[in-house]
Simulated scan of single mutants.
Amino acid sequence: MARPRKKNNAARISISLPVALFDELDEMVVERGYASRSEAISKMISEQLVNHQHQLGKEIMAGTITLTYDHSKPGLQSRLMKIQHKYLKEIISSQHVHLENHHSLEVLLVQGPGVRLKAIASELIVCKGVKHGCLNVSSNILPPIY
């Protein structure tokens, strides 16, 4: 539940992170030259909120869906392929690379209404065996293909 906003320009939150993630955050703060963890986290949240707002709209957008998955999981590749075939209008192309330890990296170039791209990404990401997935969008679109 959201708390009432304070009258000053900042609100405080408290989060718990695994130690390894915390250490990586501190490294990134130093490498990117942020003044503090708060500045780095604020920037990441801002970027995600902009991305989220774009995804909810009906505006035509271009982007990528990136998936990392365990290709040895029975039926997973077939399921991912069926989903991709369902969205032929939006999925422009795909690149598949085999990684170590039975994993694959797949990048899909997509274009369509932001809300539809979000739905496609969500449908792919929730498949059992997908380890990581994300949608990145841009308000710039591809020129007409035909």
Rank of each mutant, 00 (worst) to 15 (best):
I92R: 13
N51K: 14
G114F: 04
T68L: 09
S94Y: 05
L135S: 05
H98F: 04
E100D: 14
M1E: 07
A11V: 15
M28V: 11
S104D: 01
V115K: 14
L109C: 10
L142T: 10
K7F: 07
G33K: 02
V115L: 10
K131C: 00
K89P: 03
A35G: 11
Q53N: 11
I120W: 08
E106Y: 03
N51R: 13
N140M: 10
L17T: 10
L109W: 08
H96F: 03
L124T: 00
K7N: 11
V137T: 13
V126C: 06
S122V: 00
L108P: 05
L76V: 01
E31C: 02
N140H: 13
L117I: 02
V126K: 14
A35K: 15
L21M: 14
S122D: 09
K82R: 14
N101P: 00
Y69L: 00
V97Q: 05
L76P: 01
P18E: 14
K73W: 00
L21R: 12
N9E: 13
S72N: 06
P4S: 10
E24D: 09
D26I: 08
Q55Y: 03
L108G: 06
P144H: 12
S42T: 12
R37K: 08
K43F: 09
N136D: 02
K128V: 07
Q77D: 10
T68A: 08
